[in-house]
Design a protein around this nucleic acid. Structure first.
Length: 574
RNA sequence: CGGGGUGUAGCUCAGUUUGGUAGAGCACUGCUUUCGGGAGGCAGUUGUCGGAGGUUCGAAUCCUCUCACCCCGACCA
């Protein structure tokens, strides 16, 4: 490709509404542009090149896994969604509208209904199973608050796959294949990623993994062991109770005045004890009427997803209002304590381990010190894992300690079970001739999000750094002052053709631009390999090469150039 | 949906307090130079001042309404 024939719309300045680095760089590199409305983006030629490469790798690996590609409409009839009950439950994220005949439709945020409809029409026999369909298709979710550019846009491209099975064992097998396939995909994309155990949430099912690209700007926190393969979303990661037993009580129970000291930070500073030595009491609504107290160590954070799984706690977790707390317990939020609480109490495992602790006195302006389980109040009976794991907690698999990293969720695989197949009567005959509801798996990759995630992970102050496999072009050929040297022009044209013949994806910067402009543009756009051709170099039969991450350029003799480039770029992108 | 902020040239922004008829830098066009790191010079082009209504001799500026976008939160798998 010649630069004079390519839309190069680089910006020197960062548009004011771009918050995250991937959004800024995609805009500045001229890869995407926002359409008038919020959360909708145009893909310009250079950006689309990248997107298509990501799609190609996904497609190749999915095909290799034995999945088959289909294409389903973006517009979906309401009837199917009514059948699955999601017309009622999906909420405002589902963009609904009517056609000219007043029939109701929606824009597909996902395609479970449609694929299940295909399956129930086309699949008749267990002999056709297992089967795995995928598509790469545009989705629309009317997000409450789209943000971060293409990271969380309203319209986006997703690779979604749906598998159908007669048995759980079969589902597990395909699930494992997808796990491996995803690992291959993200490896080929050149991403540093981690597969983590995930909460299955309201979709249900018994097993789920998220694939996260590790990046400081990630929206999710993930916990992983420093010594084993264990990794889980912090939402899910289990906080193991340390094996150490509680120390003996050494202090007297005392009531102390703590005027205007409310937060754990206030109280621990005021009494000169560490937050670990304090217990905090959070009041939430119970599943039945009434309130429930949750007891955590002062330095720990409540994990609302874990808490919502407790049988006494309302799901989702809702904190009690100040008025109700005052009415039921008799004090303000900052002074709630554990002794003589009149409501059910659920104690985090770690809170159980503390002796001589500090807690509220259930009386405004007072706390208790030297409190001990068993001595000053009964040993708790209701013990639960309520908190977020923190750095250096023991790993739940017993091997090593947990580290915390930020991740961008780019893929999610889970076992759906029969939620859609049973609601929509998707059945096949088994070997005894009996109609059996199929069980399903579902596997997504946010294709457009992958592009953003790749940038979040790979950029510097000059711009994007694409991995060879997804760069819009592998090599950029930049001649120095070509318009002044006929000899250089001829040599550049020759080299351009030679590189193409050798199988490289090469961009020839034939613009009449100064060197600095060319260099700055291609560094911003993130072309991984740069060749400079100059009169000086022609004299000594060399070209100058610089990798996007290299500090300095190096001279390569003309006769070795192709071999050199092949060794640099390798086969992964060819 | 709640809170905060911003709307002026393609981009970044000044001008609004104190009303007087629209600006800078970058970008873009042409020419030019000492042309390997977003260079310099000369000459140009670019606006419903987000929209509607009002006050006024006169509104980007004051008032009312409205729309859009951004940030924080809530929501969401």
């Amino acid at each position: 490709m010649r630069a004079t024939q390519l839309l190069i719309s680089t910006l020197k300045e960062t548009p004011a509404d771009a918050e995250v680095i991937s959004h800024q760089l995609l805009l500045r590199a001229g890869m995407i542009r926002k359409l008038e409305a919020n959360g909708l983006y145009n893909w310009l030629p250079l950006g689309l090149k990248v997107l298509r490469k990501v799609e190609k790798i996904i497609r190749e690996e999915m095909d290799k896994s034995g999945a088959q590609e289909v294409l389903m409409p973006v517009v979906q009839p309401a009837d199917l969604w009514i059948e699955s009950k999601r017309w009622e439950y999906y909420g405002a994220e589902l963009l609904r509208f009517k056609d000219r005949h007043d029939r109701e439709f929606c824009l597909g945020p996902t395609h479970e209904e449609v694929i299940t409809d295909i399956a129930r029409r086309e699949l008749r026999s267990y002999k056709q199973l297992p089967i795995n369909f995928y598509q790469i298709q545009t989705k629309f979710r009317d997000e409450v608050r789209p943000r971060f550019g293409i990271m969380r846009a309203r319209e986006f491209i997703m690779k979604d796959a749906y598998s159908f099975h007669l048995t759980q064992e079969s589902l597990q097998q395909t699930y494992d294949v997808m796990y491996e396939t995803y690992s291959s995909i993200f490896s080929r994309l050149g991403l540093q990623f981690r597969a983590v155990l995930a909460d299955t949430g309201s979709i249900g099912g018994n097993k789920s993994h998220e694939f996260h690209v590790i990046a400081l700007s990630g929206e999710d926190a993930i916990a992983y062991s420093d010594q084993s393969n264990y990794a889980a979303n912090v939402e899910l990661a289990e906080a193991i109770s340390p094996v150490i037993s509680r120390s003996q009580a050494t202090q007297e129970l005392k009531k102390v005045s703590t005027p205007n000291q409310h937060s754990i930070e206030d109280v621990s500073n005021f009494l000169n004890v560490s937050p670990e030595q304090c217990l905090k009491t959070l009041i939430v609504y119970g599943k039945e009427d009434g309130l429930v107290a949750l007891i955590l160590r002062g330095d720990h954070q409540l994990n609302v997803i874990k808490a919502a799984k407790h049988e006494l706690i309302a799901s989702p977790v809702v904190f009690a209002s100040n008025e109700e707390i005052k009415e039921t317990i008799g004090c303000e939020i900052g002074s709630i304590g554990i002794i003589d609480l009149k409501i059910p109490m659920i104690v985090d495992r770690s809170a159980l381990q503390v002796s001589d602790f500090v807690c509220g006195a259930n009386e405004d302006g007072f706390h208790l010190t030297g409190v001990n389980w068993g001595r000053d109040l009964p040993e708790p009976t209701n013990i639960f894992d309520l908190r977020n794991v923190v750095e250096n907690d023991p790993s739940p698999d017993g091997s090593g300690h947990l580290k915390i990293a930020r991740g961008i969720e780019v893929g999610h695989i889970f076992q759906l079970g029969e939620k859609y197949s049973s609601a929509m009567q998707a059945k096949v005959l088994d070997e005894t001739g009996r109609a059996v509801t199929m069980t399903m798996g579902c596997y997504g990759i946010g294709v457009t999000r992958v592009v953003a995630a790749a940038i979040e992970q790979n950029h510097d102050e000059k711009g994007i750094i694409w991995h060879d496999s997804i760069a819009p072009y592998q090599i950029v050929l930049t001649p120095m002052n070509m318009h002044k040297s006929k000899r250089l022009e001829i040599a550049s044209e020759e080299l351009y053709k030679k590189l193409i013949a050798a199988g490289f994806e090469v961009l020839f910067d034939d613009r009449k631009e100064r060197a600095g402009v060319m260099f700055a543009d291609w560094e911003l756009i993130g072309i991984p390999h740069r060749l400079v051709i100059s009169d000086k170099g022609l004299d000594e039969q060399t070209f100058e090469y610089k990798g996007r991450r290299d500090k300095d350029a190096q001279k390569i003799s003309a006769d070795q150039l192709i071999d050199f480039l092949k060794s640099k770029i390798g086969n992964n992108a060819m």
